[in-house]
Structure formats: structure tokens, C-alpha cells
């Protein structure tokens, strides 16, 4: 349940949003607190053409997969309340504006707060959790964070929308992007298939060749170990001369970023959200 203070702050936020972007003045069909657009660029990072293009794409994807694809940009999320993190702000935002599609309110939301260059990527609803696994969200974040790092906002949002489309399409085909299909150690699905076919084949051929060799044991002897006279080995010269020494230093790589994704799947918190946040 949302606290009264938080609700009040959100109401203020809503008023602010309505004041800054005319679109927010409209209300959704199902209630007072629904946003009329999937892309809300309060921070003004895109031109109207860019916004229109992405809004159309996001709407189409949301409709096709019945899972909302949202972007919200803000100057500073802290100005909307005493949120401990952009993540908690995003979850409140999603809940307050009744975002998501269908009964389960499936959706994914990317929030950018420009003051401290914070971002949050959260998903809600069982279908969204299925499509956007922890690993999938990390791959998705990787696709746009490099653009945001260069202040390429439209490029980053485009990558986000396209990435959402790809992940939803994979989920629709029954193979959501997860470590099972593309492991953290860089094992692609193709490599996995090669391992499943190649390793058993190699083991099988190795075992069968071993059996075949047992069928053909006749061979010329190449050594005469058994005929050495007892005590007949005399090493008269046994010299080991040190020549030189070289030293090389190699930096040790830090631990693999993907190692966070132990068992794959999606981690959902008590509020029903999954996601990640950080800086860009």
C-alpha cells in the first residue's frame, strides 16, 4: 500500500507533468491516473519527430505483445518526493499511473533522471517477467547505456524500444533470452548445440576407436625397453646450465559482470517488480 505522503507527492508530480507536457493533461479511458502516451519526455531529450517515431513504435509493440513498453525522462526524480532510489520512484510511478497492459498489467518502464544521470529499468506482470529476465534486462541495458554515456538519447531510446521488441518476440516463441540460451560465460545457443552434438560424438568415436584398436593389436615394436641390461644405463654427462631469465607482467581482469546471474530467470521483489538501476 502506498503511503499517504507518497500519494500526495505523486499528485504533485502529476500536476507538474500535466503542466509541462500538454499530453499529460488528457486522461486515460479507464481512469484518472493513466498516462495517455507510452513515451513521456519530461526532460526534453528528443525532438517532437523523434518522440513521435518512438511513440508509434512503442504503441505497436505494446499492442502486438500485450505488454506496455514505456519511457519516462525527468530532470530529477528526487524533486518528486523523498525516494531512497530511482528504483523505488519508478515502482511508485508505475503503480500510481496504473501502467501495464491486460489484467496482470504487464509492462516494462525505463526511467531516466538527468540531474545525477540515474536510470531505472523495471518490469511488472508475469508475462513481462517471463520476457524480461534478469539477464535479458542486463543485455537490454547494455544496448542503450553506451548511447546514453555519449548523450545519444534518441539512439539509446531506439535501442531500448528495438530491444524490447526482440525480447518480447523471443518470449512469444517460447525462448526468452536467459542464461540458459546465452550463458554468462559467452556460450551462445549455437555453441551449446555444438557441444550437445560434438562432445557425445567425440566421446563415442573415442570409445569405439579404442575398441577397434583392441581388435587390431598387431604392431611392430619401436622400442627395446625390456632388453636393457640391469644396471646398464650410464649417464656420464648430466649438465643443466642456466642461461637467462625473463619476467612478464599481465594485469588480472576483474570478475565477470555477468556472474551476478547465477541461475538465470527473473528476480521479482515483494512489490511484484523486477529490474535494475544505475548510472549512465
Amino acid at each position: 500500500m502506498m503511503k499517504k505522503g507518497t500519494l500526495a507527492l505523486l499528485l504533485i508530480l502529476a500536476v507538474l507533468l500535466l503542466g509541462t507536457i500538454p499530453a499529460f493533461a488528457e486522461t486515460g479511458q479507464s481512469g484518472q491516473n493513466r498516462l495517455p502516451y507510452d513515451i513521456s519526455d519530461t526532460a526534453g531529450l528528443m525532438t517532437s519527430e523523434q518522440w513521435q517515431k518512438l511513440e508509434t513504435a512503442a504503441e505497436q509493440i505494446s499492442e502486438r505483445y500485450q505488454c506496455g513498453v514505456y519511457i519516462v525522462t525527468l530532470d530529477d526524480y528526487k524533486s518528486y518526493g523523498s525516494y531512497s532510489s530511482i528504483r523505488s520512484f519508478s515502482e511508485d510511478f508505475y503503480t500510481h499511473y496504473q501502467m501495464g497492459m491486460g489484467e496482470r498489467r504487464n509492462g516494462i518502464l525505463l526511467v531516466l533522471s538527468m540531474a545525477d544521470r540515474d536510470y531505472s529499468l523495471i518490469a511488472y506482470g508475469s508475462d513481462a517477467h517471463y520476457a524480461f529476465t534478469d539477464y535479458g534486462k542486463q543485455v537490454l541495458a547494455d544496448s542503450f547505456l553506451d548511447n546514453f554515456g555519449r548523450n545519444d538519447w534518441y539512439g539509446g531510446f531506439s535501442d531500448y524500444v528495438e530491444g524490447c521488441s526482440e525480447l518480447l518476440a523471443r518470449a512469444a516463441s517460447g525462448q526468452p533470452l536467459d542464461v540458459s540460451y546465452e550463458s554468462r560465460d559467452g556460450i551462445t545457443e549455437e555453441v551449446g548445440t555444438a557441444v550437445v552434438i560434438g562432445v557425445p560424438l567425440l566421446v563415442g568415436v573415442g570409445a569405439c576407436e579404442g575398441m577397434r584398436r583392441r581388435m587390431k593389436p598387431v604392431a611392430r615394436q619401436s622400442r627395446a625397453d625390456e632388453y636393457i641390461v640391469p644396471g646398464g644405463i650410464h649417464l656420464d654427462i648430466k649438465k643443466d646450465v642456466f642461461l637467462t631469465r625473463t619476467v612478464s607482467r599481465t594485469p588480472i581482469r576483474t570478475e565477470n559482470r555477468d556472474s551476478h546471474y547465477g541461475g538465470g530467470g527473473t528476480t521479482v521483489n515483494s512489490g511484484g517488480f523486477s529490474g535494475q538501476s544505475g548510472k549512465f
Partner: peptide, 14 residues
């Protein structure tokens, strides 16, 4: 990496 020159000489009777 250390580099060495190694030599072995002798006889083996069969």
C-alpha cells in the same frame, strides 16, 4: 621464464 641449456651423454646396454 628461465632458459637452460641441458646436455645428457652416456651409454645404454641391451
Amino acid at each position: 621464464t628461465e632458459y637452460y641449456d641441458v646436455r645428457r651423454a652416456g651409454t645404454v646396454r641391451f
